[in-house]
């Protein structure tokens, strides 16, 4: 039996889901699919796993309203039904918000994503933050130290940032930056440059986008209409 249909869904990660790692979200979604008794397709091989393809790994500690997953189903079910059935069995902290049916052939979601938007809510006082951000954006080199498996590396992240603005009344930093398999900036890695610590902020992912050759930004749903 071939693959009968596929759907793309967008989901949110709320307060309760903030500290769940990507691997745990993977497991959680696999279990939700089983509970919803959706006719999911399974991978072949030693330990069959449900065919779920995520757009991106959400760093631990973040909430989000822009996580995407593609589901391969064995029989045709429309995306609204899939969304409703999953929502009825999900634990607190996770919610499916929108869906679209996928065409027969489509590229892997993760390979498409280029960009993410974050809202960084500042919890305490940060009087000089606005100037600081203007100052940072005026530079053409922004070096940060990235730790990867015991190694420390100096990286210039200026080119990864599309925009960085401070909304003073909301005490919120709006960040649009590179995200994906080609180049990626984790928003928390930016915090030291802003004079902020992990405990001073709440970070929320508000969008995952695909930059076209024409320089347009599309959501994973928009891209299906092209």
């Amino acid at each position: 039996m071939g693959i009968s249909s596929s759907v793309r869904l967008r989901f949110s990660v709320g307060e309760t889901g903030r500290y769940i790692s990507h691997l745990d979200i993977l497991r959680l979604m696999g279990r939700a699919v089983r509970r919803a008794q959706l006719p999911i397709a399974y991978s072949q091989g030693f330990s069959p796993t449900p065919k779920l393809a995520f757009a991106s790994t959400l760093p631990v500690g973040l909430t989000s309203e822009a996580e995407y997953v593609d589901l391969q189903l064995r029989t045709g079910i429309d995306c609204q039904t899939v969304q409703a059935r999953l929502n009825s069995v999900l634990p607190e902290g996770f919610r499916f918000l929108a869906g679209a049916d996928l065409p027969e052939r489509y590229p892997a979601l993760m390979s498409l994503i280029t960009t993410a938007c974050y809202q960084i809510r500042v919890l305490g006082d940060a009087p000089e933050l606005a100037q600081r951000i203007v100052g940072l954006m005026a530079q053409d080199q922004l070096m940060i130290v990235v730790k990867r498996k015991h190694k420390e590396k100096q990286v210039n992240i200026r080119a990864l940032i599309d925009s960085l603005v401070y909304d003073a009344p909301l005490r919120q930093i709006e960040l649009q930056c590179a995200s994906g398999v080609k180049s990626n900036l984790r928003p928390m890695d930016l915090l030291p440059l802003l004079g902020l610590g992990l405990g001073d902020v709440l970070i929320h992912r508000s969008a995952l986008l695909i930059k076209t050759d024409a320089g347009e930004f599309l959501t994973p749903f928009d891209v299906l209409k092209e």
Partner: peptide, 13 residues
Amino acid sequence: PEVSKPARYTDGE
């Protein structure tokens, strides 16, 4: 945010 494996303490399962 400052402890290891915070999901141990968050409830809502």
